[in-house]
């Protein structure tokens, strides 16, 4: 409970700053219409929706940033968990919400965008139509094998003559998509075994030697990597992850075909979508600006950065426009890539 007074203090501090800022605004003269609308969220409750159960990575990020966001907006940011259908339920709800709803959401953009481009059932949103606030962090899928596996590095997987057996909870999961696109790029024979109750259980099958590899977000592997049970062999990104600096990245392995090259680029784009922050589509300009400014204000707060570093959950921020561009580029991926993603559903 030592934390609460701190937050309260910070909040009070934030409010004081805001009051000062408002006073400054007032001196500028009559900014009636604009001034009032610019502070759409101030003093109000803002729902910050997490599309998963409490306790997961998305939840941790959301709960960490919420008080800072609230401070920067002068609003009460309340984290709400709306789990269901692997984040589709909440994302659909955000897509259907109106600008007046004071709702923002953290998204598993890798999952939702691939569901969209694969034309999967249950998708009732267009990722590029959300009012983008920005990207919080990346969570590129990382391929890990058992520490005592015959497969010692990713080259072994590429060269494998035998079927490489990946594990996943079910079709359409990020784990499944990463595995099947990797196979499409490098042409190794693969199989994805589904039906595990959770990602931990799937990982255990790899450690026990019952399956070969698990492609999942690097942070979910971290515990097992640090216990020495898993060996991370590939980060599906173009730059290393801060906490796994020695693990090779996707662009280290050049595929033979030109088509493979294109797929690598598309996969890197997809995987760098990471954890985004979005608001309902069609937000008025001033509202979106307010959110984006608060996002920048919060994510540059040294205290938040230090707090997340301490949790081994680093930030990797993109602003709203950059993020939108990235998402649009993924939606425009090559037909081959879209085919490969479709194979995962």
């Amino acid at each position: 409970m030592t934390h609460r007074p701190l937050t309260a203090l910070r909040r009070a501090g934030g409010a004081a700053v805001l009051v000062a800022a408002l006073a400054a605004c007032g001196q500028d003269g009559e900014t009636s219409g604009d001034g009032a609308e610019a502070n759409f969220y101030e003093g109000e409750n803002l729902d910050f929706v997490v599309p998963y159960d409490a306790g997961g990575g998305y939840d941790v990020y959301a709960r960490a940033i919420a008080p800072y966001l609230g401070e920067c907006l002068g609003a009460e940011v309340v984290v709400r968990n709306e789990p269901g259908a692997g984040s589709l339920l909440a994302t659909n709800a955000t897509a259907a919400a109106g600008p007046e709803d004071r709702r923002i959401q953290i998204t598993n953009s890798v999952g939702t965008t691939s569901a969209q481009i694969a034309g999967a059932e249950g998708v009732m949103f267009d990722m590029s139509e959300f009012s983008m606030i920005g990207r919080l962090a990346t969570a590129p899928d990382t391929v890990a094998v058992a520490a005592d596996s015959d497969l010692e590095d990713f080259q072994d997987i590429i060269d494998s003559e035998e079927t490489v057996r990946f594990v996943a909870t079910g079709p359409g999961s990020n784990e499944y998509i990463a595995a099947s696109v990797l196979s499409a790029i490098y042409g190794f024979p693969y199989e994805v075994i589904t039906g595990f109750g959770g990602s931990g259980e799937a990982r255990l099958a790899v450690i026990a030697g019952n399956a070969d590899a698990h492609a999942s977000t690097w942070d979910s592997h971290l515990g097992a990597i640090e216990s020495g049970e898993l060996n991370p062999v590939l980060v599906t990104s173009d730059e290393p992850v801060e906490l796994l600096p020695d693990t090779p990245v996707l662009t280290d392995f050049t595929p033979e075909s030109e088509e493979g090259q294109v797929l690598v680029e598309d996969l890197v784009n997809l995987e760098t979508l990471g954890r985004g922050l979005v608001a309902p589509p069609g937000l008025p300009e001033n509202q979106l600006t307010e959110l984006r400014e608060a996002f920048e204000c919060a994510t540059t707060n040294e205290e938040l950065i230090a707090e997340l570093e301490g949790q081994q959950r680093p930030l990797d921020v993109l602003n709203g426009d950059e993020y939108l561009e990235l998402i649009e580029s993924v939606i425009d991926s090559s037909p081959e890539f879209i085919e490969a993603v479709k194979a995962s559903f």
Binding site: G200, L204, I207, L222, G223, A224, I225, E226, E229, G310
Partner: peptide, 25 residues
């Protein structure tokens, strides 16, 4: 192993990592 059996232990695992402890041997 650093492998949580359920949602509750998953949260405990993050507490582990936050505390700078590595599960395992």
């Amino acid at each position: 192993f650093g492998i949580p059996g359920g949602a509750a232990t998953a949260v405990l695992l993050s507490a582990f990592l936050i505390a700078g402890l590595d599960p395992g041997p």
